[in-house]
Amino acid sequence: MRHLVSVLVENKFGVLARISTLFAARGLNINSLSVNETEDPTISQMTIVVNGEISILEQITKQLNKLVDVIKVINFKDTGYIEKELALIKINTPKSSRAELIKLASIFKGRIIDMTLDSITVEIAAEQEKINSFIKMVLPYGIKEIFSIGIIALNKNTSLKQRI
């Protein structure tokens, strides 16, 4: 099962290592991870995606909370939230299929950010599922390269201050 965990941490050196060690020591692979400063520069927010049993997730949530540098852990399964992933997808595009691909990208609200004689690069920011469907659609044309950043997620209602 896929779990989305958001962690608010002190913005200090070594914190990411403490968190990743926790997962690694239990043999858990982190599928996706994104970290950045919040509007309060002393606090960073991490969004972590892992696969595993719910019992493991509960343990991990508690263990994360136990780390001295962790301010708050939110397991997104039980709150309303928005998630987004950003992907850059470079697709083989002979002249004949260029129009078709531009149309496809616009259906998925992708933006064309680069174009060469035989390829176009689409930027798409969406939920992971939507990105996956887009990839499926363009697969027959031949994908040259994909790079995506980790999933980021936000609680729908609360503010950072409320959450701390």
Partner: peptide, 8 residues
Amino acid sequence: IDPTAISK
């Protein structure tokens, strides 16, 4: 006192 000890 340690929440991680619960139901571990």
